[in-house]
Design a protein around this nucleic acid. Structure first.
Length: 910
RNA sequence: GGGUCGCUAGCUCAGUUGGCUAGAGCGUCUCGUUUACACCGAGAAGGUCGGGGGUUCGAGCCCCUCGCGACCCACCA
């Protein structure tokens, strides 16, 4: 049995994916890619290209729901453009995830009772490399399970040789351009992980804290400063007051005694001190506070580091304090100040505190020599191109958000003190401060002309290398024409707009002179069913693989795309996947039904078909292929399609057929528009409605009476193609099971226009309206009158050729006993259908039981009529609104008028 | 402190230059086994579009204002 009664995704998905992959259908045009030969040198020989890159998931991790969404979106785009005949290149990636992976590996070390300090940098690098290789592969299997039609041959790992080469080339260029400098600045430092971070990697949290007032004495008085960090007073080098603050004016230039020490520090005047805040006097600790660092620079003050890189107080703080961690030290300092009578007060405050985004440790601003990128020029160019509209954003609002960010961007610290990452290609001349660029980072020491140079031990911030992603994935090279760069679209999470998208734009422009992508689509967070952020601690994490296993990959994809729009954090629940599963099953059964019709026709003698069942194009292949199930182990039939054309021809023979052709055209046009505007949710909805509400409920139902096999085949093909971008597996499984289709659906062509008679399609809609009203009234009657039986009821019609011509279909769709002409003697209940004369032949007894419903209808139509009349009575409306609209309103009024008269007559007859 | 987004049916969300009687999925209720599908079919109920102003012939959509929520940025000692 080819078509089982329900679709079982698990039986098809792995084989189908393998078949796609084996057929090389993931490569651009199914032919090129991966070998450096991307396209024909003559641009005239190349069709339109479409390129998109996968934001690389962590190589040794598992996919989470966000990856599921990313892939659902990107693969739908990819498949859609592939079906449209474009040379489509979806490039997968894997991220070494520098810090993330390092944190995981450090835990492994810890569990084995080791620490990073036992090994050299190179040894650690080798260990993590092995660790990642062992763990690798899971992620890639999961990407496959989600159906991503990406070009696996071109998978880019962020530590691949070509990535490193490109990153070094950029770094060298920047170094030569004077955009890289080494500076001792305050950096965000995590004392647990013992590495610095970029500003963007730090998480600020509102926290309750205290503001202490501490007296700094001098001969004949004291000055009271306010601080949240008393433990850093050992690093104080001055007390600052505002030059305009009359309270302190006379003290400027005086020297005060630093408590708990024997040092004296000056009182200086600086705008930084806010007279309104605290006591108006502030201690200046340039080595441990960003503001103070700047004050120190302005006044040429020394920087005294008092906290070590391990988070413990340094010896300079004195025997009693050295070795304490900051919290212990704070306690002791406060205690000692109190003893000395210098603590003047404390106040509860709420302030923002920086934390390590991984371990939550409080980030210390620390004095450290690091490599920095001067970002001013980069940001400026990026802003210019953004303002010129070279990149289109979805949602559009993010463009300005990004520009604002770039405008305030500060120099970018790219040094990380972790071994897992791309080594910084800088070497220091031994016994000097002289640095040179050299890409031989596999060596920890080099010699040039008899001079020894030692490699910098640090690695690059991962964002520095990943900012090259579009460049490295598309194999961009200077001077080589590359139709895949810029990418058509960059799809990623809105949460990394700054960290990644901004940097890709800056780097793309710096390296290639072009923006790296033409459009940016940002998706929001996937929240749980109640709109809460998913987190392990809350226990509300949904694993995409669980849903794939339970309902199928397509169901997950359809579900996660539904009800989701660009840039918004939106809820998701298992229910959505269930709805997706149901749609897949519906389509499966529709296909099964059509296949049965095709089979019956193939086996039946010619004259057995009804006169109206003009099937024009039953292809001979349908007969010759027989009914054997697809055997995937033997390889798919006709893997390389010769000609991609609709395999059946058709003619339309009745209204329903014209109507479905029109509806498919309309839906196709809608989907095209929605895809262009990245409205995936709406596209899925359009297709859901087409397949379920239109194709299955009306067309297939009507085809149970009037079979047009050629049209059934052709329309089904069109529908499979249209849904394929979103639900690739079930559509391909059906395609393979159908007896008459060729090749793989993944590489089929997007459907073209169906020809139809518009008048006829319009007529069918009227018929649908009559059927719906009849059904509704029948249901109303059976609820109003016990013992009412629709199977015993006759539908009468007046002078109405539409029904006369289609009485069989009306009877079939309404399940009444019969549909016959009233022959000028109407009786029973007249239906409230505009422009049509239909009666249900029921007794007056039944009609009176229905009076309540009738009354309700009269009221409802009356209200509608009133509002329409009101509109027409407004002279301004008639005057100013478009004539078309006014005409429409008039027609509506006429229609309602007729309707209400009929209803009233009906009521009077009771 | 600055900024962005959101508030539409019980729930999750659509509603693209202002013009239909405001829609969908899920849920609820009532019928129902009919040449595919109960992962089904037919029908129904359910909304003063967060509050208040304004512009307009016309506002869910534009403007102002208030309220509530989510998120982002920021060195306030």
């Amino acid at each position: 049995m080819k078509f089982t009664t329900s679709y079982e995704p698990g039986e098809f998905e792995p084989d189908i994916y393998a078949a796609w992959e084996a057929a090389d259908e993931f490569l651009p045009g199914g032919k090129v890619g991966g070998d450096g030969k991307l396209f024909d040198e003559d641009p005239d020989n190349n069709p339109k290209t479409y390129s998109i890159v996968m934001p690389p998931p962590n190589a040794n991790g598992n996919l989470h729901i966000g990856h599921g969404l990313t892939i659902a979106i990107e693969d739908s785009l990819t498949r859609y453009h592939r079906l449209r005949g474009e040379m489509t290149w979806y490039i997968p990636g894997a991220d070494h995830a520098g810090f993330e992976t390092w944190v995981v590996y450090e835990r492994v070390l810890e569990a084995n009772k080791h620490t990073r300090f036992e090994y050299s940098r190179d040894e650690l690098y080798a260990q993590v490399w092995d660790f990642v290789q062992e763990q690798r592969g899971n992620m890639e299997l999961q990407v496959r399970a989600l159906g991503a039609s990406c070009s696996w041959k071109d998978l880019t790992f962020t530590l691949d040789e070509n990535v490193v080469r490109r990153v070094y080339a950029t770094f060298e260029k920047m170094w030569n351009d004077g955009m890289i400098y080494r500076g001792e600045k305050l950096v965000n430092y995590c004392t647990k992980h013992q590495t610095a971070f970029a500003d963007i990697e730090v998480e600020h949290k509102e926290e309750k804290g205290k503001l202490w007032d501490i007296a700094y004495p001098y001969d004949g008085g004291e000055i009271v400063v306010s601080t949240t960090r008393p433990e850093t007073l050992f690093g104080d080098v001055a007390v600052a007051v505002n030059p305009e603050d009359t309270r302190y004016k006379k003290m400027i230039g005086k020297t005060v005694r630093l408590p708990l020490t024997d040092r004296n520090i000056p009182v200086i005047a600086d705008e930084h001190a806010d007279p309104e805040y605290g006591t108006g006097a502030v201690k200046i600790t340039p080595a441990h506070d960003n503001d103070d660092f700047e004050v120190g620079e302005r006044h040429n003050l020394p920087r005294i580091q008092v906290i070590g890189f391990d988070g413990k107080m340094l010896p300079i703080c004195g025997e009693e304090y050295a070795g304490l961690d900051t919290a212990e030290c704070r306690k002791k300092v406060l205690h000692d100040l109190k003893e000395a009578g210098l603590l003047r007060g404390e106040k509860k405050i709420v302030h923002a505190v920086a934390h390590c985004y991984k371990c939550d440790t409080v980030i210390e601003p620390m004095l450290k020599e690091q490599w920095f990128i001067d970002v001013k020029k980069l940001a400026k160019i990026a802003i210019e191109h953004l303002e010129a509209g070279e990149i289109e954003f979805f949602p559009a609002s993010k463009k300005q958000v990004l520009i604002n960010y770039l405008k305030g961007l500060k120099d970018w610290n790219i040094s990380r003190q972790i071994p897992w990452g791309i080594a910084i290609p800088m070497f220091r001349k031994v016994d000097s401060d002289e640095w040179i660029f050299d890409s031989r980072t596999n060596l920890s020491e080099i010699e040039i002309g008899g001079v020894r140079y030692v490699r910098d031990e640090d690695t690059f911030d991962t964002w520095f290398s990943s900012s090259h992603w579009p460049i490295v994935c598309t194999n961009w090279e200077e001077g080589v024409v590359n139709p895949y760069y810029p990418l058509n679209v960059m799809e990623t999470g809105a949460d990394i707009l700054f960290a990644w998208v901004a940097r890709m734009i800056m780097m793309g422009l710096y390296v290639t002179g072009e923006v790296p992508f033409k459009q940016v689509y940002l998706h929001g967070l996937v929240l749980d069913a109640h709109g809460q952020k998913m987190s392990k601690s809350k226990g509300n994490v949904i694993n995409p693989m669980d849903l794939v296993a339970k309902y199928g990959s397509d169901a997950f994809r359809l579900g996660i795309l539904r009800g989701r729009s660009a840039g918004m954090n939106q809820a998701f629940s298992e229910q959505s996947a269930v709805a997706g599963r149901n749609l897949c099953n519906k389509l499966w059964n529709v296909s099964r039904f059509i296949q049965e019709i095709v089979d019956n026709e193939a086996s039946a003698p010619e004259d057995a078909t009804d006169e109206q069942t003009v099937s024009s194009g039953t292809p001979s292949s349908a007969k010759s292929k027989g009914l054997k199930p697809v055997d995937f182990s033997l390889g798919l039939r006709d893997i390389v399609p010769e000609e991609r054309s609709d395999s059946s021809t058709y003619t339309t023979d009745n209204m329903g057929e014209d109507w479905i052709c029109r509806e498919i055209n309309e839906a196709r046009w809608q989907v095209e528009k929605q895809m262009k505007n990245y409205r995936f949710s709406e596209a899925v909805e359009t297709l859901h409605s087409l397949i379920w509400d239109k194709y299955a409920d009306w067309f297939i139902e009507s085809q149970k009476l009037y079979k047009n096999t050629g049209l059934l085949m052709t329309t089904l093909e069109a529908i499979l193609k249209m849904l394929h971008p979103f639900a690739p597996f079930v559509t391909e499984a059906i395609w393979q099971n159908l007896s008459w289709t060729d090749g793989l659906l993944i590489s089929a062509n997007w459907p073209s226009d169906f020809k139809f008679d518009p008048m006829s399609a319009e007529e069918f809609e009227k018929l649908m309206n009559i059927v719906s009203h009849t059904r509704s009234t029948l249901q109303g009657l059976s609820e109003a009158y016990k013992g009412f039986s629709r199977a015993d009821t006759t539908l009468l019609y007046g002078d109405d050729t539409l029904i006369d011509d289609n009485s069989l279909l009306v009877q079939y769709l309404t399940r009444v006993k019969s549909v016959i002409s009233a022959e000028g003697e109407p009786r029973g209940l007249r239906l409230a259908v505009a422009n049509s004369e239909v009666y249900l032949d029921v007794s007056s007894e039944v009609v009176s039981a229905y009076a309540d419903s009738l009354e309700k209808k009269i009221l409802k139509v009356g209200a509608e009529l009133d509002s329409l009349n009101m509109r027409m009575m407004n002279p301004n409306y008639v005057d100013k609104a478009p004539a078309e609209l006014v005409k429409e309103t008039q027609d509506l009024i006429a229609e309602k008028q007729g309707l209400i008269e009929r209803l009233k007559a009906e009521r009077a007859a009771i």
